[in-house]
Design a binder for these strands. Structure first.
Lengths: 254, 254
DNA sequence: CCGATTTTGTTCCCGCGTTCACAAGCTCCT
DNA sequence: AGGAGCTTGTGAACGCGGGAACAAAATCGG
Protein backbone atom coordinates (compact mmCIF):
# COMPACT_ATOMS: atom_id res chain seq x y z
CA UNK A 1 0.00 0.00 0.00
CA UNK A 2 1.45 3.27 -1.01
CA UNK A 3 -1.31 5.66 -0.08
CA UNK A 4 -0.39 8.41 2.29
CA UNK A 5 -2.06 8.26 5.63
CA UNK A 6 -0.22 11.34 6.66
CA UNK A 7 -2.24 14.39 7.42
CA UNK A 8 -1.29 16.93 4.80
CA UNK A 9 -0.99 20.38 6.20
CA UNK A 10 -3.74 22.67 5.22
CA UNK A 11 -2.95 24.56 2.04
CA UNK A 12 -3.02 28.30 1.93
CA UNK A 13 -6.56 29.24 2.57
CA UNK A 14 -8.65 32.30 2.56
CA UNK A 15 -9.11 32.22 6.28
CA UNK A 16 -6.24 34.30 7.46
CA UNK A 17 -5.35 33.42 11.04
CA UNK A 18 -5.43 30.26 13.09
CA UNK A 19 -9.16 29.82 13.05
CA UNK A 20 -8.37 26.40 11.70
CA UNK A 21 -9.63 24.87 14.90
CA UNK A 22 -13.01 26.46 14.57
CA UNK A 23 -13.00 25.42 10.96
CA UNK A 24 -12.27 21.85 11.95
CA UNK A 25 -15.21 21.88 14.28
CA UNK A 26 -17.39 23.30 11.62
CA UNK A 27 -16.21 20.46 9.46
CA UNK A 28 -17.14 17.98 12.11
CA UNK A 29 -20.49 19.61 12.37
CA UNK A 30 -21.06 19.32 8.68
CA UNK A 31 -19.96 15.74 8.58
CA UNK A 32 -22.51 14.89 11.22
CA UNK A 33 -25.38 16.06 9.15
CA UNK A 34 -26.79 13.60 6.67
CA UNK A 35 -25.03 13.18 3.42
CA UNK A 36 -27.22 11.89 0.64
CA UNK A 37 -26.68 8.29 -0.33
CA UNK A 38 -26.06 9.27 -3.93
CA UNK A 39 -23.29 11.57 -2.80
CA UNK A 40 -21.71 8.92 -0.62
CA UNK A 41 -21.61 6.58 -3.58
CA UNK A 42 -19.69 9.15 -5.59
CA UNK A 43 -17.10 10.06 -2.98
CA UNK A 44 -14.97 7.00 -3.75
CA UNK A 45 -15.06 7.96 -7.41
CA UNK A 46 -13.78 11.42 -6.60
CA UNK A 47 -11.14 9.87 -4.43
CA UNK A 48 -9.91 7.77 -7.31
CA UNK A 49 -9.93 10.71 -9.67
CA UNK A 50 -7.90 12.74 -7.20
CA UNK A 51 -5.37 9.98 -6.80
CA UNK A 52 -5.09 9.77 -10.54
CA UNK A 53 -4.46 13.49 -10.78
CA UNK A 54 -1.82 13.32 -8.08
CA UNK A 55 -0.06 10.60 -10.04
CA UNK A 56 0.07 12.95 -12.97
CA UNK A 57 1.71 15.54 -10.80
CA UNK A 58 -1.29 17.86 -10.77
CA UNK A 59 -1.46 19.88 -7.58
CA UNK A 60 -4.57 21.96 -8.09
CA UNK A 61 -7.72 21.18 -10.01
CA UNK A 62 -10.92 23.03 -10.78
CA UNK A 63 -14.28 21.41 -10.25
CA UNK A 64 -14.54 21.22 -14.01
CA UNK A 65 -11.33 19.25 -14.36
CA UNK A 66 -12.22 17.01 -11.43
CA UNK A 67 -15.68 16.36 -12.77
CA UNK A 68 -14.20 15.44 -16.11
CA UNK A 69 -11.86 12.95 -14.47
CA UNK A 70 -14.65 11.48 -12.39
CA UNK A 71 -17.15 11.40 -15.21
CA UNK A 72 -19.80 13.57 -13.60
CA UNK A 73 -21.34 17.01 -13.91
CA UNK A 74 -19.25 19.76 -12.34
CA UNK A 75 -22.16 21.32 -10.51
CA UNK A 76 -22.99 17.98 -8.97
CA UNK A 77 -19.41 17.53 -7.89
CA UNK A 78 -19.32 20.93 -6.26
CA UNK A 79 -22.53 20.28 -4.41
CA UNK A 80 -21.30 16.90 -3.27
CA UNK A 81 -18.11 18.39 -1.94
CA UNK A 82 -19.99 21.19 -0.25
CA UNK A 83 -21.64 18.59 1.98
CA UNK A 84 -18.23 17.81 3.41
CA UNK A 85 -17.13 21.37 3.89
CA UNK A 86 -15.61 24.27 2.04
CA UNK A 87 -12.41 22.75 0.83
CA UNK A 88 -12.01 24.72 -2.36
CA UNK A 89 -10.72 28.18 -3.08
CA UNK A 90 -12.77 30.44 -5.33
CA UNK A 91 -10.96 31.53 -8.38
CA UNK A 92 -8.42 28.75 -7.92
CA UNK A 93 -9.96 25.34 -7.44
CA UNK A 94 -9.21 22.48 -5.10
CA UNK A 95 -5.87 21.45 -3.66
CA UNK A 96 -5.76 17.88 -4.91
CA UNK A 97 -3.86 16.31 -2.05
CA UNK A 98 -5.73 18.18 0.63
CA UNK A 99 -9.12 17.31 -0.81
CA UNK A 100 -8.09 13.71 -1.26
CA UNK A 101 -7.23 13.47 2.39
CA UNK A 102 -10.49 15.10 3.47
CA UNK A 103 -12.59 12.70 1.43
CA UNK A 104 -10.58 9.72 2.63
CA UNK A 105 -11.12 10.84 6.19
CA UNK A 106 -14.82 11.33 5.59
CA UNK A 107 -15.21 7.85 4.19
CA UNK A 108 -13.15 6.42 6.98
CA UNK A 109 -10.18 5.26 4.96
CA UNK A 110 -7.72 6.78 7.39
CA UNK A 111 -8.28 3.78 9.53
CA UNK A 112 -7.74 0.10 8.91
CA UNK A 113 -10.76 -2.07 8.10
CA UNK A 114 -10.37 -5.78 8.71
CA UNK A 115 -12.64 -7.81 6.46
CA UNK A 116 -13.77 -11.41 6.49
CA UNK A 117 -14.59 -13.25 3.28
CA UNK A 118 -17.08 -16.05 3.70
CA UNK A 119 -17.09 -18.55 0.87
CA UNK A 120 -13.77 -19.29 -0.80
CA UNK A 121 -14.92 -20.44 -4.21
CA UNK A 122 -13.95 -18.95 -7.52
CA UNK A 123 -15.07 -15.50 -6.61
CA UNK A 124 -13.88 -15.55 -3.03
CA UNK A 125 -10.39 -16.46 -4.15
CA UNK A 126 -10.38 -13.74 -6.73
CA UNK A 127 -11.42 -11.15 -4.18
CA UNK A 128 -8.85 -12.38 -1.70
CA UNK A 129 -6.20 -11.73 -4.30
CA UNK A 130 -7.58 -8.41 -5.44
CA UNK A 131 -4.99 -5.71 -4.93
CA UNK A 132 -7.51 -2.89 -4.95
CA UNK A 133 -8.66 -3.71 -1.45
CA UNK A 134 -5.40 -3.52 0.41
CA UNK A 135 -4.43 -0.28 -1.23
CA UNK A 136 -7.44 1.41 0.31
CA UNK A 137 -7.19 0.26 3.87
CA UNK A 138 -9.26 -2.89 3.55
CA UNK A 139 -7.35 -5.84 4.89
CA UNK A 140 -8.49 -9.40 4.36
CA UNK A 141 -8.30 -10.50 7.95
CA UNK A 142 -9.86 -13.93 7.53
CA UNK A 143 -11.08 -16.39 4.94
CA UNK A 144 -13.86 -18.78 5.89
CA UNK A 145 -15.42 -21.66 4.00
CA UNK A 146 -17.86 -24.43 4.76
CA UNK A 147 -15.38 -27.19 3.99
CA UNK A 148 -11.83 -25.96 3.74
CA UNK A 149 -9.71 -28.81 5.11
CA UNK A 150 -10.10 -31.38 2.37
CA UNK A 151 -9.32 -28.97 -0.43
CA UNK A 152 -6.93 -26.13 0.14
CA UNK A 153 -6.22 -24.97 3.61
CA UNK A 154 -4.18 -21.99 2.61
CA UNK A 155 -4.60 -19.37 -0.05
CA UNK A 156 -1.67 -17.12 -0.62
CA UNK A 157 -0.48 -16.20 2.83
CA UNK A 158 -3.89 -16.64 4.41
CA UNK A 159 -5.31 -19.71 6.03
CA UNK A 160 -8.82 -20.75 5.10
CA UNK A 161 -10.73 -21.32 8.29
CA UNK A 162 -13.69 -23.54 8.87
CA UNK A 163 -17.13 -21.96 8.94
CA UNK A 164 -17.51 -23.18 12.52
CA UNK A 165 -14.91 -20.68 13.63
CA UNK A 166 -16.68 -17.72 12.07
CA UNK A 167 -17.92 -16.14 15.27
CA UNK A 168 -14.65 -16.67 17.06
CA UNK A 169 -12.66 -15.06 14.25
CA UNK A 170 -14.93 -12.08 13.89
CA UNK A 171 -14.72 -11.31 17.56
CA UNK A 172 -11.03 -11.94 17.97
CA UNK A 173 -10.02 -9.89 14.94
CA UNK A 174 -12.47 -7.09 15.56
CA UNK A 175 -14.10 -7.43 12.19
CA UNK A 176 -17.08 -5.28 11.30
CA UNK A 177 -17.31 -5.78 7.54
CA UNK A 178 -18.03 -9.10 5.84
CA UNK A 179 -18.01 -10.18 2.22
CA UNK A 180 -20.35 -13.04 1.35
CA UNK A 181 -19.37 -15.12 -1.66
CA UNK A 182 -21.12 -18.34 -0.77
CA UNK A 183 -23.59 -20.17 -3.00
CA UNK A 184 -27.06 -18.67 -2.93
CA UNK A 185 -28.47 -21.40 -0.73
CA UNK A 186 -26.04 -20.73 2.10
CA UNK A 187 -26.03 -16.94 2.01
CA UNK A 188 -28.98 -16.19 4.27
CA UNK A 189 -27.79 -18.49 7.02
CA UNK A 190 -24.31 -17.03 6.84
CA UNK A 191 -25.76 -13.54 6.99
CA UNK A 192 -27.78 -14.44 10.06
CA UNK A 193 -24.69 -15.70 11.80
CA UNK A 194 -22.70 -12.64 10.80
CA UNK A 195 -25.36 -10.35 12.16
CA UNK A 196 -25.59 -12.41 15.33
CA UNK A 197 -21.93 -11.88 16.09
CA UNK A 198 -22.04 -8.15 15.56
CA UNK A 199 -21.31 -7.56 11.88
CA UNK A 200 -23.20 -4.51 10.64
CA UNK A 201 -21.89 -4.19 7.08
CA UNK A 202 -22.21 -6.91 4.47
CA UNK A 203 -21.14 -6.96 0.85
CA UNK A 204 -23.19 -9.69 -0.75
CA UNK A 205 -22.24 -11.42 -3.99
CA UNK A 206 -24.69 -14.28 -3.61
CA UNK A 207 -27.70 -13.97 -5.91
CA UNK A 208 -30.30 -13.75 -3.19
CA UNK A 209 -32.08 -10.97 -1.35
CA UNK A 210 -30.67 -11.03 2.14
CA UNK A 211 -33.01 -10.06 4.92
CA UNK A 212 -31.28 -8.44 7.85
CA UNK A 213 -32.45 -6.37 10.81
CA UNK A 214 -32.40 -2.61 10.82
CA UNK A 215 -29.04 -1.09 11.42
CA UNK A 216 -27.25 -3.59 9.23
CA UNK A 217 -26.13 -2.35 5.83
CA UNK A 218 -26.15 -4.74 2.93
CA UNK A 219 -24.79 -3.90 -0.48
CA UNK A 220 -25.42 -6.32 -3.26
CA UNK A 221 -23.24 -7.00 -6.26
CA UNK A 222 -24.91 -9.25 -8.76
CA UNK A 223 -22.90 -9.99 -11.87
CA UNK A 224 -25.68 -11.79 -13.64
CA UNK A 225 -28.05 -8.88 -13.14
CA UNK A 226 -25.56 -6.45 -14.61
CA UNK A 227 -25.31 -8.56 -17.73
CA UNK A 228 -29.07 -8.83 -17.96
CA UNK A 229 -29.41 -5.07 -17.85
CA UNK A 230 -26.90 -4.79 -20.66
CA UNK A 231 -28.76 -7.45 -22.60
CA UNK A 232 -31.99 -5.55 -22.27
CA UNK A 233 -30.51 -2.41 -23.78
CA UNK A 234 -28.64 -4.40 -26.37
CA UNK A 235 -31.84 -6.05 -27.51
CA UNK A 236 -33.52 -2.67 -27.60
CA UNK A 237 -30.80 -1.36 -29.84
CA UNK A 238 -31.18 -4.29 -32.19
CA UNK A 239 -34.94 -3.86 -32.43
CA UNK A 240 -34.66 -0.14 -32.97
CA UNK A 241 -32.11 -0.65 -35.70
CA UNK A 242 -34.36 -3.09 -37.48
CA UNK A 243 -37.44 -0.85 -37.30
CA UNK A 244 -36.09 2.67 -37.42
CA UNK A 245 -39.49 4.32 -37.72
CA UNK A 246 -41.34 1.81 -35.63
CA UNK A 247 -43.56 0.94 -38.55
CA UNK A 248 -42.47 -2.59 -39.13
CA UNK A 249 -43.11 -4.17 -35.78
CA UNK A 250 -44.55 -7.61 -36.41
CA UNK A 251 -46.53 -9.40 -33.77
CA UNK A 252 -43.39 -10.53 -32.10
CA UNK A 253 -39.81 -9.89 -32.87
CA UNK A 254 -37.93 -12.72 -31.32
CA UNK B 1 -28.62 -24.84 -17.98
CA UNK B 2 -32.03 -26.04 -17.06
CA UNK B 3 -34.12 -23.01 -17.73
CA UNK B 4 -37.02 -23.49 -20.04
CA UNK B 5 -36.80 -21.60 -23.27
CA UNK B 6 -40.09 -23.06 -24.31
CA UNK B 7 -42.89 -20.65 -24.89
CA UNK B 8 -45.47 -21.42 -22.26
CA UNK B 9 -48.98 -21.23 -23.54
CA UNK B 10 -50.90 -18.31 -22.26
CA UNK B 11 -52.78 -19.15 -19.08
CA UNK B 12 -56.51 -18.73 -18.84
CA UNK B 13 -57.14 -15.06 -19.19
CA UNK B 14 -60.01 -12.73 -18.82
CA UNK B 15 -60.05 -11.95 -22.50
CA UNK B 16 -62.50 -14.46 -23.79
CA UNK B 17 -61.89 -15.07 -27.48
CA UNK B 18 -58.86 -15.06 -29.69
CA UNK B 19 -58.08 -11.41 -29.29
CA UNK B 20 -54.72 -12.62 -28.11
CA UNK B 21 -53.20 -11.39 -31.33
CA UNK B 22 -54.34 -7.85 -30.72
CA UNK B 23 -53.16 -8.19 -27.16
CA UNK B 24 -49.72 -9.26 -28.34
CA UNK B 25 -49.46 -6.19 -30.49
CA UNK B 26 -50.46 -4.02 -27.61
CA UNK B 27 -47.75 -5.74 -25.66
CA UNK B 28 -45.20 -5.06 -28.34
CA UNK B 29 -46.34 -1.50 -28.47
CA UNK B 30 -45.87 -1.13 -24.75
CA UNK B 31 -42.45 -2.67 -24.87
CA UNK B 32 -41.39 -0.10 -27.38
CA UNK B 33 -42.13 2.76 -25.08
CA UNK B 34 -39.40 3.71 -22.69
CA UNK B 35 -39.07 1.70 -19.56
CA UNK B 36 -37.44 3.54 -16.72
CA UNK B 37 -33.89 2.55 -15.94
CA UNK B 38 -34.81 1.82 -12.36
CA UNK B 39 -37.46 -0.61 -13.56
CA UNK B 40 -35.07 -2.34 -15.92
CA UNK B 41 -32.65 -2.88 -13.07
CA UNK B 42 -35.37 -4.61 -11.08
CA UNK B 43 -36.64 -6.93 -13.78
CA UNK B 44 -33.81 -9.43 -13.25
CA UNK B 45 -34.63 -9.44 -9.57
CA UNK B 46 -38.23 -10.29 -10.30
CA UNK B 47 -37.04 -12.96 -12.67
CA UNK B 48 -35.01 -14.58 -9.95
CA UNK B 49 -37.86 -14.36 -7.48
CA UNK B 50 -40.18 -16.01 -9.97
CA UNK B 51 -37.73 -18.82 -10.62
CA UNK B 52 -37.42 -19.32 -6.90
CA UNK B 53 -41.20 -19.55 -6.57
CA UNK B 54 -41.39 -22.03 -9.41
CA UNK B 55 -38.83 -24.19 -7.65
CA UNK B 56 -41.11 -24.24 -4.64
CA UNK B 57 -43.93 -25.46 -6.83
CA UNK B 58 -45.90 -22.24 -6.59
CA UNK B 59 -47.99 -21.66 -9.69
CA UNK B 60 -49.70 -18.38 -8.95
CA UNK B 61 -48.50 -15.44 -6.88
CA UNK B 62 -49.97 -12.12 -5.87
CA UNK B 63 -48.00 -8.92 -6.29
CA UNK B 64 -47.69 -8.90 -2.53
CA UNK B 65 -46.05 -12.32 -2.43
CA UNK B 66 -43.83 -11.52 -5.37
CA UNK B 67 -42.74 -8.23 -3.87
CA UNK B 68 -41.91 -10.00 -0.65
CA UNK B 69 -39.74 -12.49 -2.50
CA UNK B 70 -38.02 -9.76 -4.48
CA UNK B 71 -37.58 -7.47 -1.52
CA UNK B 72 -39.50 -4.51 -2.92
CA UNK B 73 -42.73 -2.64 -2.40
CA UNK B 74 -45.75 -4.31 -3.97
CA UNK B 75 -47.03 -1.11 -5.56
CA UNK B 76 -43.67 -0.58 -7.17
CA UNK B 77 -43.65 -4.12 -8.47
CA UNK B 78 -47.08 -3.75 -10.00
CA UNK B 79 -46.12 -0.52 -11.64
CA UNK B 80 -42.95 -2.04 -13.00
CA UNK B 81 -44.83 -4.97 -14.47
CA UNK B 82 -47.45 -2.70 -15.95
CA UNK B 83 -44.75 -1.22 -18.18
CA UNK B 84 -44.40 -4.59 -19.83
CA UNK B 85 -48.07 -5.26 -20.25
CA UNK B 86 -51.06 -6.59 -18.40
CA UNK B 87 -49.85 -10.00 -17.42
CA UNK B 88 -51.77 -10.37 -14.19
CA UNK B 89 -55.34 -11.32 -13.43
CA UNK B 90 -57.28 -9.14 -11.04
CA UNK B 91 -58.50 -10.96 -8.02
CA UNK B 92 -56.04 -13.78 -8.70
CA UNK B 93 -52.49 -12.62 -9.19
CA UNK B 94 -49.78 -13.56 -11.66
CA UNK B 95 -49.16 -16.89 -13.31
CA UNK B 96 -45.60 -17.46 -12.20
CA UNK B 97 -44.34 -19.36 -15.22
CA UNK B 98 -46.06 -17.13 -17.74
CA UNK B 99 -44.79 -13.95 -16.13
CA UNK B 100 -41.31 -15.39 -15.87
CA UNK B 101 -41.28 -16.04 -19.57
CA UNK B 102 -42.58 -12.59 -20.40
CA UNK B 103 -39.91 -10.87 -18.35
CA UNK B 104 -37.21 -13.11 -19.77
CA UNK B 105 -38.39 -12.25 -23.26
CA UNK B 106 -38.45 -8.56 -22.43
CA UNK B 107 -34.89 -8.62 -21.14
CA UNK B 108 -33.82 -10.69 -24.09
CA UNK B 109 -32.92 -13.87 -22.28
CA UNK B 110 -34.81 -16.00 -24.75
CA UNK B 111 -31.84 -15.65 -27.01
CA UNK B 112 -28.25 -16.61 -26.61
CA UNK B 113 -25.73 -13.91 -25.73
CA UNK B 114 -22.13 -14.69 -26.55
CA UNK B 115 -19.76 -12.77 -24.29
CA UNK B 116 -16.06 -12.05 -24.44
CA UNK B 117 -14.02 -11.62 -21.29
CA UNK B 118 -10.96 -9.44 -21.72
CA UNK B 119 -8.36 -9.88 -19.02
CA UNK B 120 -7.94 -13.34 -17.56
CA UNK B 121 -6.51 -12.53 -14.18
CA UNK B 122 -7.95 -13.51 -10.83
CA UNK B 123 -11.29 -11.96 -11.50
CA UNK B 124 -11.54 -12.93 -15.15
CA UNK B 125 -10.98 -16.55 -14.27
CA UNK B 126 -13.58 -16.42 -11.54
CA UNK B 127 -16.13 -14.94 -13.90
CA UNK B 128 -15.31 -17.49 -16.57
CA UNK B 129 -16.17 -20.18 -14.08
CA UNK B 130 -19.24 -18.50 -12.68
CA UNK B 131 -22.26 -20.73 -13.18
CA UNK B 132 -24.76 -17.91 -12.88
CA UNK B 133 -23.96 -16.68 -16.36
CA UNK B 134 -24.56 -19.80 -18.37
CA UNK B 135 -27.84 -20.50 -16.64
CA UNK B 136 -29.23 -17.23 -17.95
CA UNK B 137 -28.25 -17.43 -21.55
CA UNK B 138 -24.89 -15.75 -21.31
CA UNK B 139 -22.24 -17.89 -22.91
CA UNK B 140 -18.56 -17.20 -22.49
CA UNK B 141 -17.64 -17.31 -26.14
CA UNK B 142 -14.05 -16.15 -25.81
CA UNK B 143 -11.36 -15.37 -23.28
CA UNK B 144 -8.72 -12.82 -24.21
CA UNK B 145 -5.60 -11.71 -22.39
CA UNK B 146 -2.60 -9.57 -23.16
CA UNK B 147 -0.10 -12.38 -22.66
CA UNK B 148 -1.73 -15.79 -22.52
CA UNK B 149 0.75 -18.13 -24.14
CA UNK B 150 3.46 -18.24 -21.52
CA UNK B 151 1.11 -18.96 -18.66
CA UNK B 152 -1.96 -21.01 -19.23
CA UNK B 153 -3.38 -21.27 -22.66
CA UNK B 154 -6.56 -22.99 -21.62
CA UNK B 155 -8.96 -22.43 -18.80
CA UNK B 156 -11.50 -25.12 -18.27
CA UNK B 157 -12.67 -25.99 -21.73
CA UNK B 158 -11.92 -22.58 -23.14
CA UNK B 159 -8.80 -21.41 -24.84
CA UNK B 160 -7.30 -18.10 -23.77
CA UNK B 161 -6.64 -16.08 -26.89
CA UNK B 162 -4.14 -13.35 -27.42
CA UNK B 163 -5.32 -9.78 -27.22
CA UNK B 164 -4.22 -9.32 -30.83
CA UNK B 165 -7.04 -11.56 -31.97
CA UNK B 166 -9.71 -9.56 -30.17
CA UNK B 167 -11.28 -7.96 -33.21
CA UNK B 168 -11.20 -11.18 -35.20
CA UNK B 169 -12.90 -13.13 -32.43
CA UNK B 170 -15.59 -10.56 -31.80
CA UNK B 171 -16.53 -10.47 -35.43
CA UNK B 172 -16.35 -14.19 -36.07
CA UNK B 173 -18.37 -15.13 -33.00
CA UNK B 174 -20.89 -12.34 -33.34
CA UNK B 175 -20.22 -10.96 -29.90
CA UNK B 176 -22.00 -7.82 -28.77
CA UNK B 177 -21.29 -7.86 -25.03
CA UNK B 178 -17.85 -7.61 -23.47
CA UNK B 179 -16.61 -7.95 -19.91
CA UNK B 180 -13.48 -5.99 -19.07
CA UNK B 181 -11.39 -7.36 -16.21
CA UNK B 182 -8.03 -5.95 -17.18
CA UNK B 183 -5.85 -3.83 -14.93
CA UNK B 184 -6.94 -0.22 -14.75
CA UNK B 185 -4.17 1.01 -16.98
CA UNK B 186 -5.23 -1.17 -19.92
CA UNK B 187 -8.99 -0.76 -19.64
CA UNK B 188 -9.50 2.37 -21.70
CA UNK B 189 -7.47 1.09 -24.61
CA UNK B 190 -9.31 -2.21 -24.55
CA UNK B 191 -12.61 -0.37 -24.44
CA UNK B 192 -11.63 1.71 -27.43
CA UNK B 193 -10.80 -1.40 -29.40
CA UNK B 194 -14.02 -3.09 -28.35
CA UNK B 195 -16.05 -0.12 -29.45
CA UNK B 196 -14.12 0.06 -32.71
CA UNK B 197 -15.09 -3.48 -33.62
CA UNK B 198 -18.77 -3.00 -32.90
CA UNK B 199 -19.27 -3.85 -29.24
CA UNK B 200 -22.04 -1.70 -27.75
CA UNK B 201 -22.34 -3.15 -24.25
CA UNK B 202 -19.49 -3.29 -21.76
CA UNK B 203 -19.41 -4.57 -18.23
CA UNK B 204 -16.39 -2.92 -16.64
CA UNK B 205 -14.63 -4.25 -13.56
CA UNK B 206 -11.54 -2.12 -13.96
CA UNK B 207 -11.40 0.77 -11.50
CA UNK B 208 -11.47 3.53 -14.07
CA UNK B 209 -14.10 5.70 -15.67
CA UNK B 210 -14.34 4.50 -19.23
CA UNK B 211 -15.16 7.07 -21.83
CA UNK B 212 -17.10 5.72 -24.76
CA UNK B 213 -19.15 7.29 -27.55
CA UNK B 214 -22.90 7.65 -27.36
CA UNK B 215 -24.81 4.51 -28.05
CA UNK B 216 -22.43 2.33 -26.08
CA UNK B 217 -23.64 1.16 -22.68
CA UNK B 218 -21.13 0.77 -19.92
CA UNK B 219 -21.99 -0.68 -16.56
CA UNK B 220 -19.39 -0.48 -13.86
CA UNK B 221 -18.83 -2.89 -11.04
CA UNK B 222 -16.32 -1.61 -8.56
CA UNK B 223 -15.65 -3.82 -5.60
CA UNK B 224 -13.47 -1.34 -3.81
CA UNK B 225 -16.11 1.36 -4.06
CA UNK B 226 -18.74 -0.90 -2.57
CA UNK B 227 -16.52 -1.53 0.41
CA UNK B 228 -15.82 2.15 0.78
CA UNK B 229 -19.51 2.92 0.91
CA UNK B 230 -19.93 0.33 3.63
CA UNK B 231 -16.97 1.78 5.49
CA UNK B 232 -18.53 5.22 5.40
CA UNK B 233 -21.72 4.03 7.02
CA UNK B 234 -19.82 1.84 9.42
CA UNK B 235 -17.78 4.77 10.58
CA UNK B 236 -20.93 6.81 10.97
CA UNK B 237 -22.42 4.10 13.15
CA UNK B 238 -19.32 4.07 15.33
CA UNK B 239 -19.44 7.83 15.80
CA UNK B 240 -23.14 7.80 16.56
CA UNK B 241 -22.69 5.04 19.10
CA UNK B 242 -20.03 7.05 20.88
CA UNK B 243 -22.32 10.07 21.19
CA UNK B 244 -25.74 8.48 21.65
CA UNK B 245 -27.59 11.50 22.96
CA UNK B 246 -25.57 14.09 21.17
CA UNK B 247 -24.24 15.35 24.47
CA UNK B 248 -20.66 14.72 23.60
CA UNK B 249 -20.59 16.32 20.23
CA UNK B 250 -18.33 19.37 20.45
CA UNK B 251 -20.20 22.03 18.57
CA UNK B 252 -23.53 20.63 17.67
CA UNK B 253 -25.19 17.28 17.65
CA UNK B 254 -27.49 16.41 14.87
C1' DC C 1 -77.83 -13.82 -11.32
C1' DC C 2 -75.92 -10.71 -7.87
C1' DG C 3 -73.17 -9.08 -4.19
C1' DA C 4 -68.87 -9.75 -1.54
C1' DT C 5 -64.04 -10.27 -1.85
C1' DT C 6 -59.70 -10.13 -3.71
C1' DT C 7 -56.11 -8.22 -6.43
C1' DT C 8 -54.47 -5.72 -10.38
C1' DG C 9 -53.51 -1.45 -13.04
C1' DT C 10 -53.26 3.40 -12.58
C1' DT C 11 -53.52 8.06 -10.83
C1' DC C 12 -51.94 11.40 -7.82
C1' DC C 13 -48.78 13.41 -4.78
C1' DC C 14 -44.51 13.97 -2.40
C1' DG C 15 -39.69 14.09 -1.77
C1' DC C 16 -35.11 13.55 -3.55
C1' DG C 17 -31.52 14.28 -6.72
C1' DT C 18 -29.83 16.79 -10.74
C1' DT C 19 -28.93 20.81 -13.18
C1' DC C 20 -28.88 25.71 -14.22
C1' DA C 21 -27.59 30.06 -13.03
C1' DC C 22 -25.61 33.50 -10.28
C1' DA C 23 -23.67 35.96 -6.31
C1' DA C 24 -19.59 35.78 -3.39
C1' DG C 25 -14.83 35.49 -3.04
C1' DC C 26 -10.05 34.81 -4.44
C1' DT C 27 -5.98 35.96 -7.41
C1' DC C 28 -3.44 38.42 -10.63
C1' DC C 29 -2.16 42.23 -13.33
C1' DT C 30 -1.73 46.97 -14.11
C1' DA D 1 -5.03 49.98 -4.87
C1' DG D 2 -8.44 48.54 -7.91
C1' DG D 3 -10.52 46.22 -11.65
C1' DA D 4 -10.66 42.02 -14.60
C1' DG D 5 -11.14 37.26 -14.76
C1' DC D 6 -11.99 32.82 -12.72
C1' DT D 7 -14.01 29.49 -9.80
C1' DT D 8 -16.55 28.03 -5.81
C1' DG D 9 -20.71 27.45 -3.14
C1' DT D 10 -25.62 27.63 -3.19
C1' DG D 11 -30.49 29.05 -4.20
C1' DA D 12 -34.16 27.75 -7.30
C1' DA D 13 -36.44 25.10 -10.84
C1' DC D 14 -37.35 20.77 -12.67
C1' DG D 15 -37.92 16.02 -13.64
C1' DC D 16 -38.12 11.37 -12.02
C1' DG D 17 -38.94 7.62 -8.99
C1' DG D 18 -41.53 5.81 -4.88
C1' DG D 19 -45.60 5.00 -2.25
C1' DA D 20 -50.39 5.55 -0.91
C1' DA D 21 -54.88 5.22 -2.45
C1' DC D 22 -58.51 3.97 -5.46
C1' DA D 23 -61.22 2.37 -9.44
C1' DA D 24 -61.71 -1.62 -12.51
C1' DA D 25 -62.02 -6.40 -13.18
C1' DA D 26 -62.12 -11.17 -12.04
C1' DT D 27 -63.59 -15.02 -8.93
C1' DC D 28 -66.54 -17.15 -5.55
C1' DG D 29 -70.51 -18.20 -2.81
C1' DG D 30 -75.32 -18.03 -2.18
Amino acid sequence: MTDSRTDPSKPRSGRGDASALAAAQLVDDRARRDISEATVARLPVYLRALTSLTDKGIVTASSEALAEAAGVNSAKLRKDLSYLGSYGTRGVGYDVEYLRYQIAREIGLTQDWPVVIVGVGNLGQALAGYAGFASRGFRIAALVDADPPATRTRLGDLQVHDLCDLEKLVERLGISIAVVTTPAAAAQEVADRLVACGITSILNFAPVVLSVPDGVDVRKVDLSIELQILAFHQQRKAVDARTPNGAFAPVESR
